[in-house]
């Protein structure tokens, strides 16, 4: 891990920006949710990378091991993943209702159908 240095963070930023790019560019709401999920996972990797200790092992105590990785980011991210899927489900449920109301999941089509209705 020592030779990598900041490489983890750069990959994280790349993922973060690809998630953001999908959220901005795509007009499809489902694709936007997938983009948000990519963004979210990149933050998870960011936290876990911060908690990594060179030469350490997973934080499960054993007699002959003295160096452990940082368990605190693991705890935060563990709960964040499950909360993430629950909120993703909420977003998808909203999309389903939008589809029922406007018969489309594409932003542009929703706007045009809304304008024609007004």
């Amino acid at each position: 891990m020592s030779t990598i240095g900041l490489y983890n963070y750069w990959i994280v930023f790349f993922l973060m920006m690809s998630g953001l790019y999908v959220v901005i560019v795509s007009t499809n709401l489902i694709k936007k949710i997938i983009g948000l999920n990519i963004f979210q996972t990149s933050v998870f990797i960011f936290y876990i990378s911060i908690g990594k200790v060179r030469g350490g092992t997973a934080p499960i105590l054993a007699d002959d091991i003295t160096l452990y990785s940082n368990p605190l980011p693991h705890v935060l991210i563990l709960t964040a993943i499950v909360v993430g899927v629950a909120t993703t489900a909420l977003g998808l449920a909203l999309i389903v209702r939008i589809h029922t109301a406007f018969n489309s999941v594409d932003e542009e089509q929703i706007y045009t159908s809304k304008d024609s209705r007004d």
Partner: peptide, 21 residues
């Protein structure tokens, strides 16, 4: 992602990510 979490010593997180994601 779960594979990477294993490499970064976060076995519990990898477990959750594999099941959830």
């Amino acid at each position: 992602c779960a594979l990477i979490f294993v490499v970064l010593d976060a076995v519990d997180v990898a477990f959750t990510e594999a099941a959830v994601g």
